[in-house]
Computed example of a mutant assay.
Amino acid sequence: MSDFKPTFSWLKSRPLCLLGFGFGSGLAPVAPGTFGTLPALPMAFVLYLIGITGWWLAALCVILFVWGIRICSHTERELGIQDYGGIVWDEIVAMLLVLAFVPFHWTWWLAAFAVFRLFDALKPWPIKWLDKRVHGGLGIMLDDAVAAGFTLVVLHIAAWVR
């Protein structure tokens, strides 16, 4: 089953997989992680408009992280493929967490997106270590949460030096 390529119609018949694939953004033929991070931006924008920001958004991210363990585990099982690149719920939740703690301005959001994608792609220690040793839904979610933490450290240092 390693040659299996999920489609949008396959996702539509599996609601948890649709979430796991970031509403279909994880189906991108190239850079699914990058495309999969994008839904976090309009989601955060709407949440900001209705007043869910800062620590409230972070608390929501904790809930989404816990749900994400189940969503990603289920999606992995349905696919029959471990840590499939199109599973991007982890990117969405991690990016929402980063956006909870940066100013509500397009330049900060662009920087947050770029720095997060850099950490997620390069996977410096301990991200790569976690990625190799923690499997299943928790493993999928955990390495991106750590990348989000690294991103916040870098952005807060940049704000401080600025």
Rank of each mutant, 00 (worst) to 15 (best):
W67G: 12
A121R: 13
V154S: 10
G51N: 13
G68I: 04
T151E: 02
T107D: 08
Q82K: 15
K12N: 00
A121K: 14
F119T: 03
L27E: 06
L79I: 05
A59S: 13
R162N: 12
L96G: 03
L60Y: 05
F35E: 05
G24L: 12
M1K: 05
P42A: 11
A112G: 15
S73E: 15
T37F: 05
I52S: 03
P126K: 15
R14Q: 13
P6H: 00
F4L: 14
L130W: 10
D3R: 10
L97R: 00
F65E: 01
L99A: 03
F21Y: 13
F150A: 06
W109D: 06
A44I: 02
V153M: 13
T107F: 13
G54Y: 07
D120N: 08
A94L: 06
D83P: 04
A148R: 02
A31D: 02
T75D: 01
M141K: 10
L79A: 06
T75C: 11
G80V: 11
L47S: 04
P124F: 07
I81D: 06
A147T: 05
R77A: 14
V115A: 06
C72N: 13
G68Y: 07
I92R: 02
A112P: 09
F4T: 03
D144M: 09
Q82S: 15
L19A: 08
R117Y: 03
V161F: 14
W125P: 04
I81R: 10
W129C: 05
L118H: 09
A145E: 01
A147I: 04
E91C: 09
L142D: 05
V134D: 10
M1G: 12
K12Q: 09
R70L: 14
T151A: 06
F21K: 02
W10N: 03
W67S: 13
S25W: 11
W10K: 02
V115N: 03
V146H: 09
D3Q: 14
T53K: 15
A148L: 07
P124M: 08
A31E: 01
F8Y: 15
L122D: 00
W160P: 00
R117A: 03
V46T: 11
I127H: 07
V161H: 11
W67E: 11
L138W: 11
A148V: 06
A111F: 03
P29Q: 04
S2F: 07
G54V: 10
P6C: 00
L118K: 01
M1P: 00
R133S: 11
Y48M: 04
I127A: 09
T53W: 08
G22F: 01
V88K: 06
C61T: 08
F45S: 12
T75M: 02
G137L: 08
L142A: 15
L152H: 07
L96W: 07
F21S: 02
